[in-house]
């Protein structure tokens, strides 16, 4: 995957006419998304109503915020799944952060303290991930182990009971609006804009891409890959924690075991972002579009009256389609 990407960008650098061809195919990704959403709009009159769209965006916010975290890990670790960056603990961290927040509020702590507590726990697990990866453990195995730990901690804290979450901040996150946009969506836009700016416009972001694409070259050029990798896991877990608080406020409760359910969606969203990239790399705007698409897909299929059992299958087929597109494009670029 990455070699094809390098080659493509090298070609693009040498002869400019080549740029136009991949650019056209890039739009195919957006075209697919628009096509599917248009089908839903035609199939159900309720799909395009503002209240429905707002709820789609609200759902997308959770996946997108956590997906941005995973995207940063993949960007910095390389996109080979077995050896490169992956954070399997992200879903469990989101669940744990939401639970810690809810339990803290229930125990009488102030809302800022509770949210801070949840995020600190998330960051601590992220630091453990980062440390294990920097010490040389494969990310897949390290985050698998911390996923078990985070899931178990969530059970310990919540005693496997749903913990209600009440407070003005959480109510605002659930129902509040800023300039007509739901609060969660505004938060998502802020996070996405910050991540996009940091990855595309700062030295840290460019170096992160460099470390992920070719760690040897990056370290020869004087970067320390370990430092970038460590902080990518910390940032990812922090964003996972924020997503967890968002999710808990949307459900107005911390539900135990929800982490395992959202993990697959987070992975799907982050990897799907490659379709929206000319160079087939994981990126932030693509992650947000993918999150909206996945949320819209579930919502649209439900509105069309498709049984909920099919939605999982639809998502699975979707990942395969996306990957097939990436593989085929990678092949044609390599020729």
């Amino acid at each position: 995957m990455s070699a094809a990407t390098l080659e493509e960008s090298a070609q693009a650098g040498h002869d400019t006419p080549r740029r136009t061809r991949p650019a056209l195919i890039t739009w195919a990704g957006y075209g697919m998304v628009l096509l599917v959403l248009a089908l839903f709009a035609i199939g159900s009159p309720h799909f395009l109503q503002w209240s429905n769209l707002a709820s789609v965006l609200n759902q997308a916010a959770v996946f997108a915020v956590a997906g941005i975290g995973l995207a940063i890990v993949i960007i910095t670790g390389g996109d080979d799944v077995l050896k490169g960056g992956i954070d399997l603990s992200l879903g469990a961290v989101a669940g744990l952060a939401g639970t810690v927040t809810a339990v803290a509020v229930g125990a009488g702590a102030g809302v800022p303290v509770a949210v801070l507590g949840g995020l600190v726990v998330a960051v601590a697990i992220g630091a453990a991930n980062g440390a294990a990866v920097v010490l040389g453990l494969r990310p897949l195995l390290a985050t698998l182990a911390t996923m078990g730990i985070a899931t178990s901690l969530e059970l310990v804290v919540s005693e496997n009971l749903k913990v209600a979450l009440e407070g003005s901040l959480f109510l605002w996150l659930r129902q509040g609006t800023v300039l007509g946009l739901p609060a969660a969506v505004v938060l998502l836009l802020l996070v996405a804009a910050a991540a996009w700016w940091a990855l595309g416009r700062t030295a840290w972001g460019v170096n992160s891409y460099a470390v992920g694409q070719n760690a040897t070259a990056a370290s020869v050029a004087g970067l320390d890959p370990a430092r970038y990798r460590f902080f990518s896991y910390v940032i990812s877990s922090l964003l996972g924690g924020i997503a967890g608080v968002l999710l808990a406020s949307r459900l107005s409760a911390a539900v135990p075991g929800i982490g395992a359910q959202i993990l697959l969606d987070i992975i799907l969203v982050a990897y799907m972002s490659t379709v929206f990239s000319r160079r087939l790399v994981v990126n932030i705007p693509g992650t947000v579009v993918a999150a909206v698409f996945v949320a819209g897909l579930a919502n649209g299929l439900t509105l069309l009256g498709v049984a909920s059992q099919w939605i999982g299958a639809a998502k699975g087929v979707l990942i395969l389609l996306v990957l097939a597109v990436v593989v085929v494009r990678g092949r044609s670029a390599a020729k």
């Binding site: 995957m1 990455s2 070699a3 094809a4 390098l6 390389g78 080979d80 799944v81 077995l82 050896k83 490169g84 920097v134 040389g136 694409q213 070719n214 760690a215 040897t216 370290s219 320390d224 890959p225 370990a226």
Partner: peptide, 11 residues
């Protein structure tokens, strides 16, 4: 995994 994969050197 892939043949063309650039092996990253950690440090």
């Amino acid at each position: 995994m892939t043949l063309t994969q650039q092996q990253p050197v950690r440090n």
